[in-house]
Structure formats: C-alpha cells, structure tokens
Nucleic acid binder design. Sequence first.
DNA 1: GATGAATGAGTCTTCATTCAT
DNA 2: GATGAATGAAGACTCATTCAT
Lengths: 219, 219, 219, 219
Amino acid sequence: MKIADKHSKILQASIKVFAQKGFYNARISEIAQEANVADGTIYLYFNNKYDILITIFEEEIGKIIAKVKQELANVEDPAEKLYKFALIHLNIVEENQDLAEIIQVELRQSSKFIKEYRNKKFAEYLNIISQIVRQGQAAGVFRQDVMPGIFKRAFFGALDEMSRFWLLSSKKKYTVNLAARQISDFFLQGIARQVPGRTSALNDDSSVSPKLFSDVVTV
Amino acid sequence: MKIADKHSKILQASIKVFAQKGFYNARISEIAQEANVADGTIYLYFNNKYDILITIFEEEIGKIIAKVKQELANVEDPAEKLYKFALIHLNIVEENQDLAEIIQVELRQSSKFIKEYRNKKFAEYLNIISQIVRQGQAAGVFRQDVMPGIFKRAFFGALDEMSRFWLLSSKKKYTVNLAARQISDFFLQGIARQVPGRTSALNDDSSVSPKLFSDVVTV
Amino acid sequence: MKIADKHSKILQASIKVFAQKGFYNARISEIAQEANVADGTIYLYFNNKYDILITIFEEEIGKIIAKVKQELANVEDPAEKLYKFALIHLNIVEENQDLAEIIQVELRQSSKFIKEYRNKKFAEYLNIISQIVRQGQAAGVFRQDVMPGIFKRAFFGALDEMSRFWLLSSKKKYTVNLAARQISDFFLQGIARQVPGRTSALNDDSSVSPKLFSDVVTV
Amino acid sequence: MKIADKHSKILQASIKVFAQKGFYNARISEIAQEANVADGTIYLYFNNKYDILITIFEEEIGKIIAKVKQELANVEDPAEKLYKFALIHLNIVEENQDLAEIIQVELRQSSKFIKEYRNKKFAEYLNIISQIVRQGQAAGVFRQDVMPGIFKRAFFGALDEMSRFWLLSSKKKYTVNLAARQISDFFLQGIARQVPGRTSALNDDSSVSPKLFSDVVTV
DNA sequence: GATGAATGAGTCTTCATTCAT
DNA sequence: GATGAATGAAGACTCATTCAT
C-alpha cells in the first residue's frame, strides 16, 4: 500500500468521525478503526490528534479555494460571478457534508492557532468575493459606496448560515439552485420593491452616505 | 450572599472562561477560581459542566430575544425594522462579547442536544426576521418572490459572520453603525447599480423566475 | 426536644439507612433527612460517620447481650438453654432486621478497628454459648470431648447463616420456632439415626478421639 | 506477556488488596502497584472496580465448587461425606485466606447485584450439603425429620463462622482437622450424652414433632 | 512500516466535614 | 443548640500517545 493511500485513508476517516462526533469527542481509536489501521499507525502520519484537524483544513480548504477560483475563471459578468460563487459554494457543501460540518464547527473554536489560521486561510476565500465586488465597482455595475470588506463577510455569512441549515436538517426544504439564486439576488437587487424615481439609500447624496464613510475607523 | 448571586456569579465566570478557552478546554477549577468559590460549590448550583453551558444558553439567549423584540416593538416601517434589527444584534454582540463567542462556537457543536436546542430556540430568533419580511410583503414594500425562510437565514448569517470578524480581531475596522447600515442596505436595495428600465431578476418574468419556484421542494 | 431524643433519632435513622445502603453507600445527608435534622446537627452528637457505626454496635449489641442473658437466667436445663438461646437469637433478628443486617454486613469489614471490636464484644456473646456447654459438661449431660471454643462458633454460625437467609429473602420459608428447634436439635442429638449399641464417634475410645486432642494447637 | 497472565495478575493483586483493605477502601492505584501495571491497564481487562470484584466471585467461586464436588465424588457414606465436606471447606479457606476474606466480607454487602448473585451461586454450593442429607435420608442413615433446607444453612454457617475466626486471629487455636471432625460430629451425633433408652427429640412422637411440621410455611 | 498493549497524566465529580449565621 | 451552604481533598476512570515486537 502506498504511503499516500494511508495518509489519505486516515484523513478521510477523520473527516467522517470528526463530523459525527466533533473534534473533542472523537477518539483516535475510532478514527483508526474507521481507517482500518492500528491506533499507532496514525502517529506515523500525523504528529497528534490536533495535527489531523489542521491537516484537514490545510489540504481540503486549499482544494476548495482552487476549485472555486477555477470555476469562476470563465465567468465575466460580476453579478453572474456572484451568483456562480453562491452556487458553487452551496454545491461544495452539499457534496462534502462531513467536511463542511467540520469547517463550520471546529474552525470556530477559540484556540489561538485556529483563530490565526482562520484569519489567514479564510481571508483568501473571502477575498474572492471582495475581488468580485471591486471588479463590479470598477466596471460601474456595482455601487461605489459598497464596502467590499463588509460585503464579503455578509455574503459569505449568508451562504454559510444557509449551509448550516442544510447540515442540521436531514430533509432539505430548498434546492441548492433556489437558495443560490435567492441569496445572490438579495445582495444584487435587494428585497425592496423598486419604486420608480426612488434610488437606493446607498446612492443617496444626502446625509446618510457621508456619514457612512465617516464611520470607517480603519481602512 | 443570596443564592441568586452565586448562581449568577458562577454563570458569569463560566461565560468568561468558556469564551476564553472553549467549553472542552475549560476546567471546572478555573471557573471556580474565576467565580471565587470552591470547585464543589459549582455542583450545588449545576448538575455538571455541560449543564452550565446549557443554562447559559437558556438564560442568556432568552434575555436577548426578549430585548430585541422589545426594541423593535415601536418601529413600524419594515425596512427600518430590518436595519434596526441589524443594529441591535450587532450592538448586543459588541456589549456581550464573551457570551457571543460562546454562542458562536459552542452552539455549533454536533451534540444531539445542542442541535435540537439550537433548532428550537434559534427558530424563535430567526423568525423575528421572517416576520419582518412577511409584514413588508403584506404592506407591498417588499417583493413577493422573496422567500422568508431563506431570507431570514441569509440575513442572520450576514450579521453573524460580521460579528465573528469582530470577535476575532481585537481592533475594529468598522463601526457597528456602519456595518448595520451597509448590511441592511445590501439586503434592501442590493448592490447592483440601478439601471433605468431594468428590474430585478427577482421580478423578471423570464426563464429565471419560474425556475425559482419549481425549485421549491417543500413549502 | 431532649438531647437524648436527637441522639437516638439519628441512631435509628442511621440503622435504617446503613441497613438499606450499606455503610459506604450511605450518605450523611440521607441519614439527616431520615432523622429530620440538618446535616450539621449529626456532628453535634457524633464525631464522624464511622463513629455512628461504632455507636450502633456499642449501644445495640450491649442491649442484645443483656436481653439474651436475662431471658436465659431462669432456664436451668443446658439443652433447654441452648434451644432457648437459638429461639431468642432468631427472634431478635426477626424483630430488628435493620440492625441485624448491619451487624451481619458491617461487622465483617476488614477495618482494623472492626476486627478488634468484633473480637472483644463478640466474645462476650459467644461465651454465653460456651458457658452453657461447660455447664452441661459439668452436669454430665453434654459430652466431655466437645470443645466449647469450637462449639460456640459452630452454633452461632448456624444461627447466623439462618438469619442471613431470612434477611435476604422477603418471604420466609420456615418459622422462627421451627428453625430454632431444628438447629438446636442438630447440635443436641445429631442427625444420624440412633443405631442401638452404637455410640457417638465423639465418645469413641478408638484412634479418632486421641487424635482430636492432639490436634489442639493452643489452649 | 500473555493476556491471560495480566488478567490473572490483576485479579490476584485485587484479591490481596481487597482482602487487606476491603473493597471500598481499596484504591485502584494500590491494585495497579501490587500487580505491577499502570492504573489504566486495569481498565483494559475490567470495566470498572466493581467488575473486578464480580469477576473474583465468578471465577474463583466456580473453581471452589468444582473442587469440592470432585473431591466428594468418591466418598460414599453420607456421614463420611459430611465430614469430608467440612474438611475440604476449611482447607480451602486455609489455603486461600485472602479470597476467603473477600467472600466473607463483600458477599454480604447489601447491593442488589451481590444479593442476587449470592442467591444464585451460593445456592449451588449449599445444595451440595442438602444433597448429602437427602442421600443419607434415602439410605436410612439420617433422620427423616431433618429439614435439608435448614440443615444446609446451619452446617455451612457453622463452618463459615469457624473460618472467620481463623481469618481474624493470626495464630490458630485449633487445627483444620480437629475443627472439621468436631463440627461434623456435632451435626451427626449431637453433643448430648446418649442416655440409654432416650431417643432424640427429633424422633419424639410427642407434641414437639407435629408442631415442627406445622411450622413450615412454605415447602 | 505496522501493530496494539501499555502507559499515566489529567479532570470531573462526590461527599464527609466545617463554620458563619 | 441548630442549620445547611460551602468547602476541598480524594479517586475512579479516560484516552492521547508511546514503543517493544
């Protein structure tokens, strides 16, 4: 058996067990059993239990980011790109439920390492969104007063919460397509009914906009 | 010292320690020290460590829901209500950072109890949002094709992710007001620049809209 | 309330709880509740949990010994006395089941104190039996080769095991009278059918008897 | 080291420690030290502390019963069999003092499990005695009015109490042979001096005997 | 490399005992 | 004297990690 096989087998087993039990309630012996190896074997491939978790993040999140970037590469229209991002994100969750569960749960732990790690690695993912926004603003199709740093978090958070809903409930109320379409449209068009002659508050010259920018603490 | 005092003292200490270390890495002895009581005293007020966590949720989340509902009571305009909700939510997070940290981290654990609990208690909170949407739709100021069940999750998720950002970074890039304004405007007006004569995809009669509704699996 | 009352109330409650749960599984708080006093009150009357157990032995066993001695006082015939002893012993067990349970169980603990205590206090009780034997031997109605030191233990053991059987089974197969009669007759007449001309092995001049006495290690 | 070895090593160490300190005062760490293994190792072979105790009973009492039955197999005469039983029983106690101590002390605990267990396993042992009695009655060498259900308990109790005496006192006053001979003779011939023409009360036609049988509550 | 028996540090929890009221 | 809330020492048990085979 090739080394790569066993490394991967343990990783896949860990994803399954961590997803089911959570990191702290997962037992090394369970992972070993799931991976069909001896307990000790795991330590030939990983330094410790925590290292397995980190490796899951490193390897799997990297793959996801790469996949999303690649699939967005040939979409030009920023609005379309945003919708596509939502669709891809939700599809990945749908197809990797165990992994998604782990990322959602364990990446929120308050361990110092996790916090730093999330900041770094996650930034890359979130910045795909802010890039789309900036591109749209440059192209003049997105409002100038939208702050990409806030938008990327809001947009990701919306998708993320939708994902959690799916992971929790076995039966799905909405399809991935519907959710992706609705959410991207919320962010693109808003839910307010377009009243002729009325423009968005975000474009408003009045007191609100200036105030918005004076709210910025740091850039 | 009144019983209520000690119960509360232990709860506050737990919130602090759980937020700092996470539930699994928190030691009962740390909580006891933080609360200035003996280890054993904790067990006069709580059945076990897990019971403390549950009690935090039960008592604190209840307070929050009550507070939000009350503060929204005298706002009439649905759009204004949505903005207010965002503002209140973010302010509560800002003012209860330890508690917010715990809710964000521990309420995602995959324990069966937590899952069920979250489903129940959280539904109440999310439904504040969907009520606003339905009210807006009834008043004709929100689009009819917005699905409240998706919207409430998207809107909450956006706020929640923004909160996490704050909890992670010590220095805040954006003020609460700015974030609340931006996020509620994203959802109300969308970020797409209003092109005269163009209507939202959500209102579009074309292929997209019909497909949206055929996507609904369950209502 | 008189002090004596509370001391006694706690003792009676302890007997009940110790009998039900055993000494090690009995909780001071249970005893307090059963005695209708506060936990702390128990320590006004006893030094510690173990002291309660000791006191039960001291006070109650003393009463029993006195009672048995008194009831046997006006019986003259040694054989009748033996039967009477059995009857009284079994009746006391019958009427003080909780206490009997405790004596049976806890007085066998291997604690150094208990061992010494049993040796001392118990000797007094067992010696009532050996006195009867010696009296019978002196009167010429009991065999001379019966060793009172062995007999007292055998006779007591027989009654004790019969008692345990009663304490364990809720429904009684045999009456106290029947058991006392049978057991005392076992020891008095033996169970072997009397064959005319045959004498007991105990009276036998042959190899056995001399061997019996040469077996004595210490007197 | 073979698994059987360690299982047995822990069991033997437990027997020693339980005998010395009693079950409740024995520490797992003491057993581990005595067995020359780590504390945790014990839990590879036993579920918990109590399980060790149960296993001691299950494995050791079974051995004893088998041994007694086997050694009695080639004795024909019921009276001789009774004497032999006494001898074997006392010899086993002599040779397994720690085990005997545990059986005497812990098997009397009032735990529900112990009670049930004792009832079941012990019945088997006691019934060896009642079988001997029935055999003797069938052969016409034991009296018909002896109740085997009472006799077995009386006879066992006598031996058991004698054993306890040995376990408590370091120096032995009597040899095993002497005690076995005396006790079996007590039960076979009785201690009353045979007066010519006098028959046992058990055979008496008078008021006593009929009363005996009317005392039987259940058969 | 692979194994899995063995390790022992670490922690929740219990409960006899104390002592301020 | 009586209370019962508070204490904190003590111990069973778990499980990540090691290492001899």
